Simulated scan of single mutants.
Amino acid sequence: MTISMEKPSSDAPSGGKVPLVELKDVGKSYGNITALKGICLRVHAGEVTGILGDNGAGKSTLIKIISGLHQQTEGELLVDGEPMRFGSPADALAKGIATVYQNLAVVPLMPVWRNFFLGQELRKKSFPFSLDANAMRATTLTELAKMGIELPDVDAPIGSLSGGQRQCVAIARAVFFGARVLILDEPTAALGVKQSGVVLKYITAAKEAGFGVVFITHNPHHAHLVGDHFVLLNRGRQKLDCAYDDITLEHLTQQMAGGDELEALSHELRSAKG
């Protein structure tokens, strides 16, 4: 399988040195409830940043801040080294930050090409300015082929594709519409081993093409396979921040599972059996 993606524009202000996206002591509160506190995060071009955490760890809130859905209540969000305060997801997308959510926001009964251009349809340049279906079909085939996805019929309902293929269509769509940073929300959560492997290959391909990838997951094995940097969230706090070379899969899994808390529980259960 050959996967080819066009590199993001080389004149990007980051130049590969300044992070594409950076969070400095970011926090988010909803009234008296603190969802995030003191989060520091860097997303570099050509790297996968794995964000790990169990349910309720704060991963969804973090996604919403970076993607422009919510604003932080404290700290700074920087893009290419410049402070930003997004007012909407459109603002984030204008800066090259695209989010592929777990539910994908696709219309299952609509053709693949219609979903690829959903909300950003191409129209003919002459009257009656109707949808340019042929151009959208051709573009969809070309962009999917770059990712190694060969679909015999882009008129097939997207709901007929496998879960891995749907994820890859969504990633290709984000890349086509100008993303430099891809935020992937639990892309392998509902997939089997084979389909998860397909998605992980595309994540690696995106990294090698120079994109900054934020891989949200609760699976340390998947994160360790493709990640360059790992951040572990626990109840809205940052518990771990380390590079690939500084942590083993075993240690990452232990920390994800609760670390010292798990060891204490194991000791308590063994004592109870004794």
Score class of each variant (00 low, 15 high):
I3M: 03
M5H: 02
P8T: 12
S9E: 12
S10T: 09
A12V: 10
P13E: 11
S14M: 02
S14D: 15
G15T: 03
G15E: 00
K17A: 08
V18Y: 00
P19M: 01
E22N: 02
L23A: 05
V26M: 00
V26S: 00
S29F: 00
S29V: 01
S29W: 03
G31Y: 00
A35F: 05
A35Q: 06
L36K: 00
G38E: 12
G38V: 00
I39L: 01
L41I: 02
L41A: 03
L41S: 05
R42Q: 14
A45E: 14
G46H: 09
T49N: 09
G53Y: 06
G53R: 04
N55D: 05
G56S: 09
K59V: 07
S60R: 04
L62G: 05
I63H: 04
S67I: 00
Q71L: 01
E74S: 07
L78G: 09
V79Y: 11
G81N: 03
E82N: 05
M84V: 15
A90M: 11
K95R: 15
K95W: 10
I97G: 10
A98M: 07
T99Q: 02
N103A: 11
L104T: 10
A105E: 15
W113H: 13
W113L: 05
F116G: 11
L118M: 15
L118T: 09
Q120A: 14
E121T: 15
R123V: 14
R123N: 13
K124P: 10
S126Y: 10
P128I: 12
T139H: 06
E143T: 11
L144C: 06
K146C: 02
M147N: 01
E150Q: 11
E150H: 09
L151K: 07
D153W: 14
D153S: 14
V154N: 04
A156F: 01
P157G: 10
G159W: 06
R166W: 03
R166G: 06
C168D: 12
C168S: 07
C168E: 13
C168Q: 13
A170M: 12
A170G: 01
I171M: 14
A172N: 03
R173H: 00
A174D: 01
F176G: 00
F177C: 00
L182P: 02
I183L: 15
D185E: 07
D185G: 02
E186D: 14
A189Y: 04
G192C: 07
G192E: 07
S196L: 07
V198G: 02
V199G: 04
V199T: 04
Y202F: 01
A205T: 06
A205D: 08
A209N: 08
V213R: 11
V214R: 06
F215C: 06
T217F: 08
N219H: 10
H222W: 03
H222V: 04
H222Q: 15
V226Q: 09
H229W: 14
H229T: 02
H229C: 08
N234K: 15
R235F: 11
G236R: 12
R237W: 00
Q238V: 03
L240M: 13
D241A: 15
C242W: 11
C242L: 14
Y244V: 02
D245V: 06
D246P: 13
T248C: 09
H251A: 15
Q254F: 11
M256D: 01
E261Q: 08
L262S: 08
L265R: 07
L265C: 03
E268S: 08
R270I: 05
R270N: 07
K273T: 08
G274D: 08
